Simulated assay, not measured.
Amino acid sequence: MNKIYLILIVFSLFTVSCTEQENKRKNTEKKQATSSLSEIQKKLDIDPTNAEYLIKRAELYMQSNQYNEAILDIQSAIKQEPENTDYYLKLADCYLNAGQLKNAMGVLKKVLSIEPKNTEALLKMGEINLMVRKYKEVFTYANAALEGDPYNATAYFMRAYTYKELKDTARAIENFMECLKNDPKNYNANIELGLIYSSKKDPLSIDFFKNAIAIDSISEIAYYNLGMFYQNNDYLNEALDTYRALIKVKPNFPYSYYNIGYIYMQLLKAESEAVPYFTKAINVKSDYYEAYFNRGLCYEILGDVQRAREDYQTALNLHHNYEKAIEGLNRLDQ
């Protein structure tokens, strides 16, 4: 039986979408930050307490994941402008990126003491409470944000994700849809709705996954889960086409090759067609013991006992006590 590969969706509630293209942009910014740091440092050498320059340097530090340095600069800027909530919000971001949730919450509470209806602070407080699964507090902050901004897509996404965590699928769908109503290009909302409808075997999932691909054309999450929907619902040609499309944009993603191999082997009974795809999966992911096992199974069916034995043994070496590999070796010894 195929082992479904679960792709974790890592997202920030405060970006429109966490796409691969966005990650590439951030990597470019990191490279640019090094040269920019020297320029801003020259200005700070002349005017070391200039809050604007300190914030600029902090931003450059953050691009390079130098959070401790960024925190010090932002704190220095706040000393110059203690009522500037933008600086506090940036400090909260820095703490969040550094994993210092308690410090982030303390800063955000300071913002809310200055501006009780600050939407960004409310949403960040909601995000932190979602991280620690304090769902009642998530709703409190998300609802407060919506009072000030009734069309805020992030607040609807936050509520939707919380309902999903609470297994209230109907309300999760309702809020994800509200999120998309206000932000049609929200990648994460499309993915989440695709996953929900896919779990129901509802073809509506196809549209949401395709929407996500239109937003991020190199997203393995969207392609893969679209392929899985097709595969699990016996649209095999569509599944094969989707996995092949994913291979074009992500040739080093091993699970596309594996699933094509599985379809040929298990569902189409075309073992000789399956072998090259399991091999490609292994070439990309050398410890992929399931791929070794299934290639071995193909070889066994095709009568190539020696190669079958080698693959079963490799699968067992990679995953000790792997029952399927042990059974395969025992069959060959009979």
Rank of each mutant, 00 (worst) to 15 (best):
Y289I: 03
F14D: 13
A160T: 01
M228D: 07
N103W: 00
S272Y: 06
K201V: 01
Y95A: 00
Q266H: 07
I7H: 15
V284G: 08
Y151R: 07
I215G: 02
K167M: 07
E192V: 02
L226G: 09
E39L: 10
A51P: 02
L332H: 07
S17T: 14
Y289F: 15
R331M: 01
F278D: 06
L72Y: 12
L44E: 03
F208M: 06
Y223F: 15
K201S: 12
K324Q: 12
F209E: 00
A308Q: 06
G261R: 03
L318R: 08
E220P: 15
N283F: 06
G296Y: 10
V111M: 10
L91I: 01
I191G: 11
A239C: 04
K24T: 10
I128F: 05
V16S: 14
E327D: 12
A51V: 06
A155R: 01
L316R: 08
I191Q: 13
A51F: 12
N175M: 06
K102Y: 04
I173G: 03
K102A: 09
V138L: 04
E310N: 13
Y312E: 00
N23E: 13
F293Q: 02
G328V: 08
K110D: 04
Q80F: 08
N294S: 05
K248P: 01
Y264F: 11
Y312N: 00
A98R: 08
L302M: 15
V284K: 14
I247T: 11
E271M: 03
A325Q: 08
E69I: 02
L37Y: 10
L246G: 10
I247Y: 12
N97M: 09
A144V: 00
I301V: 14
